Computed example of a mutant assay.
Amino acid sequence: MQSLTVFLLACEGQIPRFDAALFADTGWEPKQVYTQLDTARRIGAQAGIPVLTVSSGNIRHDALNPDARFVTMPLFAKNPDGSRGMARRQCTGEYKIKPLKRAIRDILG
Results as ranks from 00 to 15, higher is better:
Q2F: 11
S3T: 07
S3R: 07
S3G: 15
S3N: 13
L4P: 00
T5E: 12
V6P: 00
V6M: 08
F7A: 08
L9H: 10
A10D: 06
A10L: 06
A10W: 06
C11N: 09
E12Y: 10
E12L: 14
G13Q: 03
G13W: 04
I15P: 03
I15S: 05
P16A: 09
P16H: 06
R17T: 13
D19M: 04
D19K: 15
A21L: 06
L22Y: 15
L22F: 14
F23R: 04
F23S: 04
A24R: 03
A24T: 11
A24Q: 09
D25I: 05
D25G: 06
D25S: 15
T26V: 03
G27T: 07
G27L: 07
G27W: 07
E29N: 12
P30S: 01
K31I: 07
K31F: 12
K31R: 08
K31P: 11
Y34N: 11
T35G: 02
Q36Y: 01
L37W: 02
L37E: 01
D38Q: 12
T39G: 01
T39H: 10
A40H: 03
R41Q: 13
I43P: 02
G44R: 05
A45R: 15
Q46E: 15
G48N: 07
G48V: 10
I49A: 08
I49M: 08
P50E: 01
L52H: 11
T53L: 01
S55E: 02
S55C: 06
S56H: 10
S56L: 00
S56W: 00
G57H: 06
G57Q: 07
I59F: 02
R60I: 03
R60E: 08
H61I: 04
H61R: 11
H61G: 00
D62R: 11
A63L: 10
L64C: 04
L64T: 04
L64H: 05
N65L: 00
P66V: 11
R69G: 01
R69S: 07
R69D: 12
R69Q: 13
F70R: 12
F70H: 13
V71P: 01
V71N: 09
T72A: 14
T72F: 09
T72S: 14
M73R: 14
P74L: 02
L75A: 13
L75T: 13
L75G: 05
K78L: 12
P80L: 02
D81V: 08
G82N: 08
R84I: 10
G85F: 05
M86N: 09
A87C: 04
A87E: 10
A87M: 11
R88F: 13
R88W: 07
R88V: 10
R89I: 00
R89W: 04
Q90T: 06
Q90L: 11
Q90H: 12
Q90S: 11
C91I: 01
T92Y: 05
T92S: 15
G93V: 09
G93H: 12
G93Q: 13
E94I: 14
E94F: 13
Y95D: 03
Y95V: 05
Y95G: 02
K96F: 11
K96Q: 09
I97V: 15
P99S: 05
P99W: 06
K101I: 12
A103H: 03
I104F: 06
I104M: 14
R105A: 15
R105D: 12
D106F: 00
I107C: 00
L108R: 13
G109W: 02
